[in-house]
């Protein structure tokens, strides 16, 4: 970008006088400054995920063919086993239910083991085309750079894996920068908000003057905020995905803690196909939810660190005072005892 700018400026220098060059320089400077603000960083992260999503879609779509071979395989398995069942039915045609059910159980068990093996190799019931739709790829990129890593959708080609590693190498620092910045900004907003509320709710007395400069938000407020966000997320995801409430709370908590176990992922529902229209919007909404939720986590981390630091300092002071106090008291005690003893002598 800088080289572009320089090329631009040199060209403009040739064509005109000093004025436009300075203007371009100013413009460039403001753009760079804006890029490091919260909104700019957010846009940067968003753009990075969008670019990543497009890239991964192109890298991984050839895999759809591979997935269809698995589909063909499972169909052939089904055909073979149904033929075998027919043979069993022909052989055991003497109305011997016991033998018949034993033979059929054996056939079914072999079929079951085949299906399980195929699933372990990556066969998905619902993915009869490409699993890498745009929202899904967007979700994948977000899960990579935020280090959540759901793992419901993973690159299977060698190039995809290499691209993931490189993408993570550049994406994670970017995201961390965003995380710290947004945490700061949101913490400032929340503190201001809290101060306003605090001042409104309490009587304006003389204490307000020296409280004014720095109000420390209690950590209970942060905890309540996080719990509220969690419950709101759970309440929205639950009915959509037909999860029960505990499952959706579990999903939200593990996502926001960046564990990302990946047993519950929005849009990866087994019963509905992943290409339907509703699922796409759901994916986008869950993307926004997680994006914003991680910002909130950063904010809470920021505020709580402040408060805990203050508390630790207070506790240390208290402890020191306590130690001093006991020391003085012990000394007094000793003196009294010594006095008594000396009196005795």
């Amino acid at each position: 970008m800088r080289s572009m700018h320089r090329a631009n400026s040199s060209k403009s220098l040739r064509s005109t006088k000093r004025r436009p060059r300075a203007k371009i320089k100013d413009c460039c400077r403001t753009i760079t400054a804006f890029m490091f603000t919260q909104i700019g960083l957010g846009a940067l992260v968003f753009g990075y995920t969008v670019i990543g999503a497009v890239g991964f879609m192109h890298l991984e779509t050839p895999l759809a063919r591979n997935n269809t071979t698995e589909l063909v395989e499972i169909q052939s398995h089904r055909l073979r086993h149904s033929l075998e069942l027919y043979r069993v039915a022909l052989n055991q045609n003497i109305f011997d239910e016991h033998n018949f059910s034993i033979a059929i159980d054996r056939v079914l068990a072999s079929y079951q083991s085949k299906v399980v093996e195929l699933i372990k190799r990556g066969y998905m019931e619902s993915s009869d085309g490409s699993a890498w739709t745009f929202p899904a790829a967007l979700m994948f990129c977000l899960s990579v750079i935020t280090m959540i890593g759901y793992g419901n959708l993973v690159p299977k080609t060698g190039y995809g894996k290499l691209a993931t590693v490189i993408y993570a190498l550049f994406g994670i620092p970017l995201y961390v920068l965003f995380f710290l910045n947004v945490g700061d900004a949101l913490a400032g907003v929340f503190r201001w908000f809290y101060r306003k509320l605090h001042r409104c709710s309490t009587q304006p007395d003389e204490n307000a003057h020296h409280n004014h400069k720095k109000t420390i938000v209690p950590s209970s407020a942060c905890v309540w905020l996080m719990v509220g966000y969690l419950l709101a997320g759970a309440a929205t995801f639950g009915p959509w995905e037909r999860w029960d409430f505990l499952d959706s709370v579990y999903f939200c908590a593990t996502s926001l803690c960046k564990i990302g176990v990946g047993d519950f992922v929005p849009g990866a529902n087994y019963f509905s196909s992943s290409t339907s229209e509703g699922n796409q919007t759901k994916l986008v909404i869950s993307y926004v939810y997680i994006f914003f939720g991680l910002g909130l986590v950063a904010m809470c981390y920021n505020l709580m660190r402040e408060e805990i630091g203050e508390r630790v300092k207070n506790a240390k002071e208290d402890f020191d005072q306590c130690v001093e106090d006991t020391g003085v008291r012990l000394l007094g005690c000793f003196r009294k005892i010594r006095g008594v003893v000396e009196e005795d002598y």
């Binding site: 899960s143 280090m147 890593g149 793992g151 894996k161 590693v165 993570a168 990946g262």
Partner: peptide, 15 residues
Amino acid sequence: SYFCFISLSTIGFGD
């Protein structure tokens, strides 16, 4: 090496 990177960067796909 993909596994090691994904694990140590705490992404953890689990594939």
